[in-house]
Design a protein around this nucleic acid. Structure first.
Length: 561
RNA sequence: UGGGGCGUCGCCAAGCGGCAAGGCACUGGGUUUUGAUCCCAGCAUUCGCAGGUUCGAAUCCUGCCGCCCCAGCCA
């Protein structure tokens, strides 16, 4: 996808690949097995795409397997409908978990039995400290914690109390099961972490069968082991949890001991991935839902028209390391253009039209031009393009008083109309207020594209649509959601940096007729403007609505500024 | 002042004792009926800093400095 050119230098392997290859070579594993473990409490965003691509991608690359597992251990936050959305997003990215769709809640019975095993080994106890007391006794970063007064209960008593917890005999907050590790550990995670808490909440998968729920650290490692995961990949903030991950697996009779490996999550400038903040955007109506095309959610990017291949390419180019890195948005833009460039069929649309009358073109006449769908790839075929006396061009493709090097239409000048003729400027027509309402030109019949006999050359070529045969449309210009690269890390709230121009609708836009056959999901290029696709919610065959996926690279705009 | 990580070009990133890959961005030039694409060229005497070991260090040692994460009965 990226640079598969001539000298095709092999892409260097990243550290996780080194680990996997060593494990395969040493015979530690015959095949690898990974998993993508989202919590079903929100929608997936571009950051999740990295975890998805790494887990599924590595399994694919080394002939292994990757499970999809919902980490549903907190009934108060999770909801079933998120699961369907997550599944759709993972599939959209092009990955498949086969029959291996699991839930942490599938293991609640086993998790309960392993907890009993820990109690029997004297490694877990029921603690009746309240949340505040427990915090007070945990110590600080520099001071050790104190042992709970309940720490030395007998195995029999712990067994009885834990069962009482399970039977609903304790109110929420009145008792937890804790691992007995070390209250003086410099790693806070090892200071007798809670492994079960009481919650009288309906769980979306297990209903009211349980009133005690296992905590993440305890659940995750055991779930991995039960699924035969070989490499448990997660983000950097879990590094401190690895000793606990290993501790549980060492104490309990699970079938294997997966290796947890941490990598840096994906960060992009001009975007945010905080669940809380994305939710705020939606709740406060700052965007139109989770799949608003401005959103960095996978559903938003899909609706905007960004190809999943471009996202996979981005992840591929960015690499996998333990160093926190913020990638420039420009790289994503490059990936999108690289994927779409050779594939998107070309059409013409005028976003902000101004009428051009070709005064020497016979009134009432019209001709059908043949225009290639992709000038570099003739195999894509052609479409018919009606041309007549009246057409529309882009308002900013004409300037009365142009700067030097402006080679579009100007007084005294000429331009080529893409796939049609060269036209010469004649005059502008104004209304009473002096506003230009029309431009009059003449065309040069010998310059028709392809079959013209003239040797005449002009510097500029502009796009256009026929006045009569073009179709009115709403076209939304999508741009970055924020005006600063780091809206997250400012003194003002991030909402202060929302880009008011992130979605501009062009109400007067007009499309060439062939565009009426394009449906949502099909990306096209509007020549000289960018890549666009019909909006999956609002587009109607008779009333088209297109979203801009990405502009074309524009060096002219750069030179001007 | 505890513990765990990370510091190689503007943004990423190879490199693992033998003398700084690659991508993106940027800059110049060529092609072009998309100021797009494509092509060609340029772009770190230097690897957070300071010492040390060595014939030789981004790579080894020592000491500093900077940044990130951890005190949920969240994940």
């Amino acid at each position: 996808m990226s640079s598969s050119n001539e000298n095709a230098v092999e892409k260097p392997k990243h550290f996780i690949q080194h680990i996997i290859e060593a494990d395969l070579a040493s015979g530690k594993h015959a095949r690898i097995h990974t998993r993508f473990p989202p919590e079903p409490n929100g929608y997936l965003h571009i950051g999740h795409a990295k975890a998805i691509c790494i887990n599924f991608g590595l399994a694919e690359q080394y002939g292994g397997l990757c499970n999809l597992r919902f980490d549903d251990t907190n009934p108060e936050k999770e909801e079933a409908h998120y699961e369907q959305a997550i599944e759709a997003d993972v599939r959209w990215l092009g990955f498949d978990w086969g029959e291996r769709l699991y839930h942490a809640s599938d293991y609640f019975d086993q998790l309960y039995q392993f907890a009993i095993e820990l109690i029997e080994k004297g490694l877990a106890y029921v603690c009746e400290l309240g949340p505040e007391e427990m915090r007070a006794q945990r110590g600080t970063l520099t001071e050790p914690g104190q042992n709970s007064p309940y720490r030395d209960r007998s195995v029999a008593e712990n067994l009885r109390l834990f069962e009482a917890m399970k039977n609903g005999e304790f109110e929420e907050g009145k008792a937890v099961l804790r691992a007995k590790i070390d209250m003086a550990s410099p790693n806070l995670n090892l200071r007798d972490p809670v492994i079960y808490r009481v919650r009288f909440a309906e769980h979306h998968a297990t209903g009211d069968r349980w009133c005690i729920y296992p905590m993440y650290d305890y659940t995750h490692c055991i779930s991995d082991a039960l699924e035969g995961i070989t490499h448990s990949l997660c983000t950097l903030e879990f590094e401190d949890h690895r000793p606990l991950y290993d501790w549980f697996l060492d104490q309990v009779s699970v079938p294997c001991h997966p290796q947890q490996i941490e990598f840096a999550r994906l960060e992009l400038d001009y975007i945010i991935t905080s669940k809380r903040k994305l939710n705020q955007l939606v709740q406060e109506g700052l965007v139109n839902g989770w799949d608003d095309p401005r959103m960095p959610t996978l559903s938003g990017m899909r609706r905007r028209g960004i190809p999943p291949e471009a996202i996979r390419d981005l992840i591929d180019r960015v690499g996998v390391t333990k160093k926190k890195a913020t990638i420039e948005l420009g790289l994503l833009e490059t990936c999108v253009r690289d994927w779409l460039g050779p594939r998107a069929p070309r059409y013409m649309a005028v976003l902000d039209p101004i009428k051009v009358v070709i005064t020497n073109y016979p009134e009432g006449e019209e001709e059908q031009l043949d225009a290639p769908l992709h000038s570099q790839n003739p195999e894509m075929g052609t479409r018919k393009l009606p041309f007549g006396r009246e057409i529309y061009i882009e308002r900013d493709d004409f300037m009365e008083d142009p700067p030097k090097k402006y080679f579009r239409l100007k007084p005294g000048g000429a331009v080529r109309l893409r796939y049609a003729y060269i036209i010469d400027f004649e005059q502008v027509v104004r209304d009473e207020s002096g506003r230009i309402v029309e431009i009059h030109c003449t065309y040069d019949p010998d310059t028709r594209s392809g079959i013209g006999t003239s040797e005449r050359k002009v510097k500029g070529t502009i796009h256009w649509v026929p006045a009569r045969a073009s179709q009115p449309a709403r076209v939304r210009l999508i741009d970055r959601l924020f005006t600063v690269p780091d809206p997250d890390r400012r003194d003002e709230p991030f909402t202060a940096f929302i880009n008011p121009e992130a979605m501009r609708e062009m109400p007067e836009a007009r499309l060439e007729p062939a565009l009426s056959a394009i449906e949502p999901g099909q990306p096209v290029q509007f020549e000289r403007l960018g890549y666009f696709t019909p909006d999956s919610h609002d587009h109607q065959p008779g009333a088209p609505v297109f979203n801009r996926i990405m502009t074309l690279r524009d060096t002219w705009a750069k030179k001007k500024s």
